[in-house]
Computed example of a mutant assay.
Amino acid sequence: MHSQKFAQHPVQLPEGVRLIQNKHGREFLQIDHPAVSARIAMEGAHITHCQPAGQGPLLWMSASEPELPGKTIRGGIPLCWPWFSDTRSGPAHGIARISPWQLTAVSSDAERVSVRMRLAHSLIEQALPGEKWKLDVEFVLGSDLMVTLITRNMGEERQALSQALHSYLPVSNIDQVVVQGLESCAYLDQLTGHLQIQQGPVRFTAETDRIYFNHSGDVRLIDANKQVISVHRKGSDSVVVWNPWIEKSLRLSHFASDDYRHMLCIEAANAGPDARVLEPGETHRLTTRITRGAADSSVV
């Protein structure tokens, strides 16, 4: 990758933060700070890498992902907005992850870097005729990662919203992963359309695509090496858990046949029964915070 000057982003960048392009011409914000290294694609406001100092990566990225301009990225945290999945006509998971974003602010101190980006009003109006939204995303990067989608209804009528922070998390082997925090929670199995109740911790032996709802607590991914990635959420009463397993992996773009073994999505969401309706002038903030730590004696 190489640095260039980008007149379209007239934002003062602190030391350790720069705009770069990859070999295909896709533009990224590159962060090399004593507390954290990270990278955010300007197209899609898509964070593809975050590694706090002295820790392993907080996000998974497919080694097969070429990061081409104009294409979605497999890994990191795609922004699903203003609809989740194919609940509306148009691009899967909405327009945010396929649109160029504007960099509006970057700041840093000794412990963290903060980044704010905005989806242009003109782009929203063109892509969603008749809808009036203001959309910002904030990243706070340091010893952990916090991402917040901030949506405001700028119109004079109520507007429907479903969304997700589609976080790909790294695991050593999906066969040996345990997810805690969802015990006794109701979920919609999107593979069957059935409602079910989670019995015990979540384990993985087949394709999994679930929306857990009426749930706002923390979720812990416990890896075989007893490392824990915790997902903390705000403004979210639903959490999506997804792994494509073997057969679907073969149909996914930029996804190796065994990639399913090394990733798991645990997504802060407003999806399924948790879809929202924003009144005129109302603002909703959807936040995920991802942290690393070691497992304690409560691990099953």
Rank of each mutant, 00 (worst) to 15 (best):
D32M: 02
P34Y: 15
T72M: 10
N22D: 15
L79E: 00
K71F: 03
S64E: 15
I47C: 11
A96T: 09
R74F: 12
N22K: 06
Q55E: 15
C50Q: 08
P100T: 05
P52I: 12
G94N: 02
R26N: 06
P82W: 07
G70V: 02
R97I: 07
R74G: 10
H33F: 10
P100H: 11
R26F: 01
A53H: 15
E65L: 09
H24D: 06
S89Y: 05
P66I: 13
S99M: 03
A35F: 08
E27N: 11
H93M: 10
I77D: 02
I77P: 09
L79P: 00
H33S: 00
R74Y: 12
L68R: 13
A45Q: 04
W60H: 05
P91N: 01
C50A: 15
A41I: 04
L68F: 02
A35S: 15
A35E: 13
I73G: 03
H33C: 02
H93E: 02
A35Q: 14
W60Q: 01
I73A: 03
R18A: 14
I31D: 05
A38P: 06
I77H: 08
K23Y: 13
G75Y: 01
G90Q: 12
K71M: 08
A41L: 01
R97W: 06
N22V: 02
W81F: 13
E43I: 04
S89Q: 14
S99Q: 07
M61G: 00
